[in-house]
Computed example of a mutant assay.
Amino acid sequence: MKSLYLLVNFFSVIIPLLFSFHPRIKFYKNWKAFFYASIPVSIIFIVWDVIFTHYGVWDFNPRYVTGIFLLKLPLEEMLFFICIPFSCVFTYYCFNRFYNLAWNKKVEFFFCIFFSLFLVVAAYIFKEKLYTFVTFISTAFVCILLKFVCRVTWFGKAVSVYAILLIPFFVVNGILTGTGLEEPVVRYNDSENLGLRVFTIPIEDAFFGLELMLAYLLFYIRLEKKNEEGAEETNYRTVKMKNI
C-alpha cells in the first residue's frame, strides 16, 4: 500500500512515455523542451504545495507513500508535478498534431473574459477559503496572461484538450482523493475549500489541473519553437556550406 501514490504516477506517465517513440509522433525529440519547461513551473507549484501543506490545506496519508520526504512533501508529490504535466503536454502535442482544434477567435476571446471574470468573482465571494481563493485567482491570472499579454494562439486548443483529459483526471484524482480506498492518499481540509466534490474530488482540483497544464504549455511551446528555429537555422547553414 505504501507504493500506491508511486504507482499512480507510474501508470499516469508510462503510456505517453512509450508512445513518445511512435514513428508518427516522435515526441521524444521534444523531451528536452519539456524538461527545461518543467524547471520553473514545477518549482512554482512545489512551493505552493509546501506552503499549503504547512498551513494544513491538505496533507498526505502515510499509508500510501514510501516515506521519502523532501521539503516536507513526499517524493511522490514531487513526481506528480513531472508525470502528470508530461502526460498533459504529450496529449496536447498529439491532438494538435493530428487534429484541428482551433477555436474561433471571438469565441476564444469571450470565453477567456467570462471564464476569468467568473473565477475572480468566485474567489472574492469565497476569499476565506484558502485553496478556493488562491486557485481561482491564479487560474484567472494565467488565462489573462496567456490570452492578452503573451497573446498565445493555442489557448482554445488547450482548453479543448483539457476537457478530454478530464476523463483520466477523474481516474487519477479519484484514486488520490480516496475513490475505492479506505482512506484518501491526499487528505483535504474542507474548511479551506468549497466542500463541493465530484465523487471524492474537490471541485477546485479541476481548475488547479487546468492552470498546471496551461503553465507548462506556455514554457514548453516557446522552447519547442526555439528548438525548431534553431534546427532550421542549422539545416540552412549546412545546405549553404555544401553549396559552397
Rank of each mutant, 00 (worst) to 15 (best):
S3E: 13
Y5R: 13
V8G: 00
F10V: 00
F10W: 00
S12D: 01
S12V: 00
P16E: 04
P16L: 01
L17M: 11
L18K: 00
S20K: 01
F21N: 06
R24V: 06
K26N: 15
F27E: 09
Y28S: 05
N30K: 04
N30L: 05
F34M: 05
Y36L: 12
Y36T: 05
P40D: 02
V41P: 12
V41M: 08
I43T: 11
V47P: 00
I51R: 07
F52P: 12
F52R: 14
T53K: 13
T53A: 09
H54P: 04
F60Y: 15
F60Q: 05
L70K: 04
K72E: 10
L73W: 12
P74M: 09
F81M: 10
V89G: 09
Y92G: 04
Y93C: 00
N96H: 12
Y99G: 13
Y99P: 01
N100K: 12
F109N: 06
F111A: 13
S116I: 03
S116N: 02
V121D: 05
V121I: 15
A122D: 03
A123M: 07
A123W: 14
I125S: 14
K127T: 14
K129L: 03
F133K: 08
T135K: 03
T135E: 07
F136P: 01
F136W: 10
T139S: 06
F148P: 08
V149Q: 03
V149M: 03
V161M: 03
Y162T: 03
I164D: 09
L166G: 13
F170Q: 15
G174H: 04
T179K: 09
G180M: 06
G180Y: 02
L181K: 11
V185W: 11
V186I: 15
N193P: 15
N193S: 09
F199P: 02
E204K: 01
D205K: 01
F207D: 07
F208W: 11
F208V: 07
L210V: 02
M213K: 02
M213I: 14
Y216E: 01
L217E: 07
N227R: 13
A231C: 06
Y236S: 15
M241P: 04
K242V: 12
N243A: 10
I244A: 09
I244F: 12
